[in-house]
Every structure is written in C-alpha cells, then in structure tokens.
Design a protein around this nucleic acid. Structure first.
Length: 270
DNA sequence: CAGGTCTCCTGCTAGC
DNA sequence: TGCTAGCAGGAGACCT
C-alpha cells in the first residue's frame, strides 16, 4: 500500500519518463476515480496540457500542467504503467493518458484511488491539499507542535499517527515501525506522551521514511511503483508482519486498532 | 467538535 | 476439489 516513500518513488520514476510530454487525449474507463471536476470537464481541460513538473505532498502526487494541477492519490493499490498504445488494456486500467509515442495508464485493482484536476492558482488553499499537516522534514514539526495537536485527543497513538492533518505520509506499515523504534505501545493515548516520546516519534518517522525512500519503498503483496520497479524496504521491516521481536525475541502481538492490523512487541513497547 | 462506524472495491484465503 | 463468507485498508461521509 503506497505510503509516502512509495509515492516519492513513483514521482521519481515518472519524472524520468513523462516530463515535458504533452497529453493528447485521455480515456476514463471508471468515472469514480475522478473526484473533481466532472469527467467531461476533466477530459476537456486536460487535453493539450504539458506535464511541466511532478511533485509530492504527503501521499498525493502532483502533476504540474500548464494551467492546472492533476492531483492523484494512489490509496491502496494505485499504480502507473507506461504502455504502448497497441498494448492490451487490462481490466484494472481505469484512466489512460495518451502521449505521442506511448500511454500512461493508471491501474487500480480496488478502485480506491482518486484524481482532482484543479486550477493552478491557490491549489494549496483548497481541498484536498489544504487539510494536510506538516511533511516529516518540515522545520516547524517539533515536539511542541505534536504536543499541542495531541493534547486533546483520547485516541491511541497508532490511530493519531495516521491522521494526515497533523503530519503527512505515515500509513499503517510505517506507523507500526515508528512506534516499535520509539518503544511506544500503540494503544497509548496520544495526550499522555512526554517530550522524549514525541521527539522519538519525529526522529524515527524521518529515519524510517528516509530509509524506505532510499530503498524504493515497501513491496507487500501488490505494490510496485511502476511496472517492474519493486521496493526493497519490506526486507527491513522490524515488527510489521513479523512473528518475533528482533530485540527481545518474544512473540509479536497482532491486534486491531481502529480497524487496522497492528503489530507490536508488548515487552519492548510501553 | 471529537470520535465511532460505514462505505468504497477486489483478490485472496480459511473453512467447510 | 470447489464454493463462499469474511477480511484487508486510506480516507471521506455520515451519525451520535
């Protein structure tokens, strides 16, 4: 499932392949992927636009066009494939961007991914980008900020780490890894964390995500950044999907917190 | 307003 | 062996 490192990897791979290419046409085979505007307007507006840059904000991919931003969230299983126009269109290829010599195809088995085509001006001031918290490397992300954001929450820290309006980029897998390295029990209420624990969360969030980016993300089940590109971070996981704790060798506990599969060591994480 | 629950989807798998 | 019910999960909608 694409989290920040996977999206960063996709961004870098696509930059090599589609920068400065003009979108000649687009086919939308599954309309629900397009959140805004209407599919007809989406197609009309995007035709003739050139991709001038590709950026990332949280788990969102931002394709910068001449007049618009195309925002794309991969959610669980979204992937981009570069294909020839005569390649067979398979059942999960829902949005097809046509270029002069090739096609960019958005593939999404579960159809959870979403796209927005928004005016360039003020794109960061409206939904969905205006609701996002700090990037993990933002200099404003300090323990005092987290303390303020966490103080009134009665939810377990595992749940709060996934809240993209506080800090972006963390998904279910990395949340488990960050809490394991921080030696914090995922059930602990976010309001009860002390300064040292908050600083550890910031430190290990950056460390885990940086390492995952270097390794091209995590491949569990179906994720690939682009066809044929597989991440290697899954080899580095310490607790998520693991049986025993690499530190104390006790059995890893698997529970559900807020409906999310959660792995932790109840000996090491207090 | 915060928090709980439902919803969207399909592939996979445990269980019969 | 073949079928099906149930599960997985990011994030927004909706309800309390």
């Amino acid at each position: 499932m694409p989290e920040l490192p996977e999206v960063e990897t996709v961004k870098e791979v696509l930059k090599e392949q589609i920068l400065n290419q003009k979108i000649l046409d687009v086919n939308v085979n599954y309309p629900n992927i397009i959140e805004r505007p209407t599919v007809d307007e989406f197609i009309k507006k995007i035709k003739g636009q050139t991709i001038t840059d590709i950026k990332r904000r949280g788990k969102w991919l931002l394709f910068e066009l001449n007049d618009y931003y195309l925002l794309s969230h991969l959610r669980m299983e979204g992937k981009y494939y570069i294909k020839n126009s005569d390649d067979e269109i398979t059942r999960h290829q829902h949005v097809i961007f046509k270029f002069k010599d090739f096609e960019l195809r958005y593939n999404d088995t579960r159809k959870f991914g979403r796209m927005y085509l928004l005016d360039k001006k003020g794109v960061y001031d409206i939904k969905p980008l205006n609701e996002l918290g700090y990037e993990p490397w933002d200099e404003n992300l300090k323990s005092s900020y987290l303390k303020e954001k966490y103080k009134n929450k009665k939810l377990p820290i595992k749940t709060v780490l996934l809240d993209q309006s506080i800090m972006v980029g963390i998904g279910n897998i990395y949340a488990d890894e960050i809490l394991y390295l921080s030696k914090i029990n995922p059930y602990k209420q976010s309001s009860c964390l002390n300064d040292e624990e908050l600083n550890n969360i910031i430190k290990y969030t950056k460390m885990v995500l940086e390492k995952a980016i270097k390794l091209g993300g995590t491949t569990i089940k179906s994720y690939t950044s682009s066809e044929g590109v597989h991440g290697r971070f899954q080899n580095e996981l310490l607790v998520h999907t693991k049986e025993t704790c690499p530190h104390c060798h006790k059995k890893i506990v698997k529970v559900k917190i807020n409906g999310r599969g959660t792995y932790y060591c109840d000996n090491c994480q207090k």
